[in-house]
Nucleic acid binder design. Structure first.
Lengths: 203, 203
DNA sequence: GTCTATAGGCTGATAGAC
DNA sequence: GTCTATCAGCCTATAGAC
C-alpha cells in the first residue's frame, strides 16, 4: 500500500510535467521553453524532467505521442450518417479540442521542414484526410457530380478550425479593444457555423 | 561615385541579412535561429546584424514591418467587382505570397499570447477582415439574406490558404511517399479551387 | 524519487583592428 | 562598413546527497 502511494505520487509528478510541458511547448515553442520553466509550472525540480523523460527532447516526444493517440482515438470513432458533413466538421473540432496544445505543437512542426514529422503523426493526419474523402465519396450523386478536390475540401474544413483555435487569444484581445460587445464564439459554435457553410458549398 | 558604390554594397548586405533572417525566423522560429546562422546564410559576419539592425530583436522587427507593409499595399489595391468572392480569395492569396515568410512568422506570433502583436500588424489584419465584411455586405439580396457571420467566412477563406501554405513542404513529402502521381497544386490553383467552393457556399 | 550543485556548451553583444 | 576575438550569461544534463 505504501508502494502504491509512492507510485501514485510519481504518476502525479509525471502528469504535472507533461501538462506544463504541453502548455509551454505549445505557446512558446520548443527552444524558447526552458526545463526550468517546465519544472516551475509543474511544481517540481528540473532534474526530474531528465529523470522521467530522458531530457527535454524526450518529454516533447512523449507529449506529442500522447496527443496523437488521443486524436487518433476520436477519429477512429467514426461518423453518424445523418448529416455527414456536419459530423465530419464536429469530429475534427473534437479531435483538436481533445488536447488543446496539440494543434499549436503540430503547426510548429509543419513550419520546420528539416525536422521530419513522426511517422505515427503523419499516419494519423492522413487518416483524418481519409475521413473527408470518405464523406465526399458518400455524397448523393447530384452533389458528388461536382467532384470536389478532396484536398481543397479537407483544408477548407481543417484550416478554419485551426486558425480559429490558434487565433483565439489574439482575437479576444483585439475584439475587446475594438468593441467589447462583439461575441467571441466557442470552438463548437464556430464549428457549427463552418459546417453550415460547408454543407451549402457541397450540396 | 565611389560613395555610391559603397552605399550599394551596404544595401546588398542589409538585404541579404533580411532575406536570411526572414527565411530562418519563419522556418525555425526566433529562439531557434542564431545570429551566427543568419550571418552564414547571408554570407557576412555576425557582428553586422547588430551593426545594421541593433541586434537580433531589431532585425526581427524590421523583417516583420517590411512584410506587413507589402501585405497592406496589396490589400489596399481593392477588388474588381465582377466576381467579388473570387477576387477576395485571390487578394488574400496574393498578400500571403507577397512575402513568403510572412504567414509563418505571423502564425508563431499568434501562438505566443504573451507577446502582444504589433499595433500596425493588428491594424493590417483587421483591414483584411474588413475586406471580407465588405464583400459580404455587397452580395445580392438573396444571398445576403443568409446573413453569414463575417468571422466564420473570413476564417474559412484565410484558414485554408494559410494551412495550404504552411503545409506545402510536408504535403509534398508525404504525397511523394504515398503516391508520386498525385498532383501538388500551386497556391494560385488552390486559391481558385477554394474560391469556387466559397462561391458555392455563399450563393 | 526527489533535490542541490555544478560542469560544459552555446548564444548574443561588443570592443577594437582594419 | 566589415571583420576577429572575446566575454558574460544562460541553458541542459548529470553526479551525488538524501
Amino acid at each position: 500500500m505504501a508502494k502504491q502511494k509512492t507510485q501514485q505520487r510519481t504518476l502525479e509528478t509525471r502528469a504535472a510535467i507533461i501538462a506544463a510541458g504541453a502548455h509551454l511547448f505549445a505557446t512558446r515553442g520548443y527552444a524558447e521553453t526552458g526545463v526550468r520553466d517546465i519544472a516551475e509550472e509543474a511544481g517540481c525540480n528540473q532534474a526530474l524532467v531528465s529523470y522521467h523523460f530522458d531530457g527535454k527532447g524526450g518529454l516533447y516526444d512523449a507529449i506529442l505521442a500522447d496527443a496523437v493517440c488521443k486524436a487518433q482515438a476520436i477519429a477512429a470513432e467514426g461518423l453518424d450518417g445523418d448529416e455527414p458533413v456536419r459530423a465530419l466538421v464536429r469530429t475534427f473540432a473534437k479531435a483538436m479540442a481533445s488536447s488543446p496544445h496539440f494543434v499549436p505543437m503540430l503547426l510548429r512542426e509543419y513550419m520546420a521542414p528539416d525536422r521530419m514529422l513522426n511517422p505515427e503523426t503523419s499516419r494519423t493526419l492522413l487518416g483524418m484526410m481519409a475521413l473527408t474523402r470518405g464523406v465526399l465519396d458518400a455524397l448523393p450523386d447530384g452533389a458528388a457530380a461536382k467532384s470536389w478536390d478532396p484536398q481543397v475540401v479537407h483544408l477548407s474544413i481543417v484550416g478554419p478550425l485551426i486558425l480559429f483555435l490558434v487565433a483565439t487569444p489574439v482575437r479576444e484581445a483585439v475584439m475587446g479593444e475594438v468593441d467589447a460587445s462583439v461575441s467571441t464564439p466557442t470552438l463548437d459554435q464556430f464549428a457549427d457555423g463552418l459546417a453550415t457553410l460547408m454543407e451549402n458549398a457541397l450540396e
